[in-house]
Design a protein around this nucleic acid. Structure first.
Length: 486
RNA sequence: GGCGCGUUCGUCUAGUGGCCUAGGACACCGCCCUCUCAAGGCGGAGAUCACGGGUUCGACCCCCGUACGCGCUACCA
């Protein structure tokens, strides 16, 4: 498809890639792919205090894991400092910007005073007309100036936002914001404008926390003689308490979701639904998302992040995995949890995947579902109480050991047939013979299907576990006997 | 304080003047299936469409106002 669409994701590397950033990246990526355009990754690291290399890695890792591949970049703003200086000098020379020697303390005082007078805290332009001699005096005192943009104080700036619609701002409400700090590093509002222009960005798709900054950027771009890109401001993602999603709300790093066993396609699908929808559909393969995505269908109002729905969706995608894929994932999660995965063959893992697939909501859940295959886990006291300690359990265990010891191929369907026959002959309801066996074999009241579990455990281990359960009951009998005898 | 944005079931949303006695999904509840747990099937409950005024034969949908929430108002982005 012929296209000149160029979009970008421009995070500041002050922390891991979080859910909100991922959603912004996703929408940009979808828009680029939908229109056959270019997706640029740009790191906005002009805040030297808070930016870190680790954060850059985390962002790149997160996006890579999600499959949000970019076509250009990552560009670093700190690599482009000369370019910003060049543009700042130009504006200075044209009288569209000026140097300001006010100190942070002075500015803070002015702000407070304005607020006290119930006025908008707007810079009063006291440095706008400063003579060169005064400037020289300031320099002599060791003051380093910032560069302020001389904002037009009349007229209106209209943003034709693709999500929010037409938004009108009075320029007089803007003030002469700082473009370049005293240390020569540009501020966000300046660097974005230069970058988006230099990188030929056609559509700026970002969080709506930037909507109020947009007129500043437009006015600055106009002063620079740039053509202005289209804008689309996405609604925020909120926590359950309806405030902006943050660390306080628990897991917000996409890497955390990866480590818990979420599938990238599930997270992508879920995130796409936060602020966007297509008829009644809820499950979308990535290609489907690309085919159907459009800015016109993006909602205007913020969305609360719902971990429960993400979990459900992850289950949907886990069930769509092929067995070899699932087995591969499961092995790595089991290994990470310290289970000795070399204990079994690949075929064994395939079989395990088969019987656990529809029982998983997160990949990491496999650990709690399969640990007992590697070594006995302590009996769950509740299971002992409610199942093992029932009348006749010992008898069931004994008979089952007998039945399973007979010569036959130790496969699920055979095991099932013989155990059902046992229930039949003893006259005990099938579920009452299966449940104690489950507890004996897995230690718990919940497990993968019993017969498959036994097959995977193997005849010897299965019989051994049944015997151990029986011993446990015998010990208890003795104790009870001893006590009542006293 | 100023400016801006937003407001449909608990949550994500469908809905662009009559199809809405408001549809779907998650969560919740019940039933079925069933060796447990899941998955699956069926069903239920759940929204006076923030509130108040208009406009209209008719408003969730259009206009105005109010309330509440959020964002910006930094030498953060």
């Amino acid at each position: 498809m012929e296209s000149n669409v160029r979009v970008r994701f421009a995070p500041s590397p002050t922390g891991y890639l979080h859910i909100g950033g991922a959603r912004t990246a996703l929408f940009n990526w979808l828009y680029a792919r939908r229109h056959g355009g270019v997706f640029v990754l740009r790191i906005e690291d002009t805040d030297r205090e808070r930016s870190t290399d680790e954060a850059i890695d985390a962002i790149i890792n997160g996006m890579t894991w999600l499959g949000l591949n970019w076509d250009e970049g990552p560009y670093l703003q700190t690599d482009r400092l000369d370019r910003y200086s060049e543009e700042a000098r130009r504006l200075l020379a044209e009288g569209k910007a000026y140097k300001c020697y006010c100190t942070s303390e002075e500015l803070e005082e002015m702000r407070k005073a304005a607020l006290d007078r119930k006025e908008a805290p707007k810079y009063d332009r006291r440095c706008l007309t400063q003579s060169e001699s005064v400037q020289a005096a300031c320099e002599a005192r060791g003051l380093r100036p910032v560069t302020r943009f001389r904002c037009p104080d009349w007229g209106t700036t209209i943003i034709a936002d693709q999500v929010k619609g037409e938004v009108v701002f009075e320029n007089q409400n803007l003030d002469d914001f700082i473009m370049v700090r005293a240390d020569g590093i540009p501020t966000y509002n300046f660097a974005v404008v230069v970058d988006d222009y230099d990188m030929n960005i056609t559509h700026v798709i970002r969080g709506d926390d930037h909507l109020s900054n947009t007129p500043r950027q437009v006015v600055l771009g106009q002063a620079l003689g740039y053509r202005i890109p289209e804008f689309a401001h996405l609604p925020m993602i909120l926590g359950p308490d309806k405030t902006r999603l943050s660390k306080r709300h628990g897991a917000t790093a996409v890497e955390a979701y990866r480590d818990e066993g979420y599938l990238p396609q599930a997270l992508i699908n879920y995130l796409a639904l936060l602020g966007w929808g297509y008829e009644d559909q809820t499950v979308f393969a990535p290609e489907d998302l690309i085919a159907k995505f459009g800015l016109e269908a993006v909602g205007k109002s913020p969305a609360v992040f719902d971990p429960a729905k993400l979990e459900w969706m992850n289950g949907v995608y886990i069930r769509e995995l092929t067995l070899p894929e699932l087995a591969g994932y499961q092995k790595s999660f089991m290994q990470a949890a310290g289970l000795p995965i070399e204990m079994y063959e690949d075929a064994w893992y395939l079989r395990l995947a088969e019987i656990t697939q529809e029982r998983l909501t997160k990949l990491a859940d496999i650990v709690g579902l399969s640990d007992f295959f590697f070594s006995r886990v302590p009996f769950d006291p509740v299971a002992v109480e409610k199942v093992l300690n029932k009348e006749g359990t010992k008898d069931v265990l004994e008979k089952a050991i007998e039945v399973l010891s007979a010569p036959f191929t130790f496969e699920a369907h055979e095991i099932e047939a013989r155990l059902r026959a046992l229930a039949e002959t003893t006259g005990i309801k099938a579920k009452f013979v299966f449940q104690p066996l489950r507890v004996a074999v897995s230690g718990r009241t919940i497990s993968p299907p019993l017969f498959e579990t036994m097959e995977l455990l193997g005849r010897d281990t299965t019989i051994e576990r049944l015997g151990e359960a029986k011993n446990l009951l015998e010990q208890e009998d003795e104790q009870v006997f001893g006590e009542t005898n006293r």
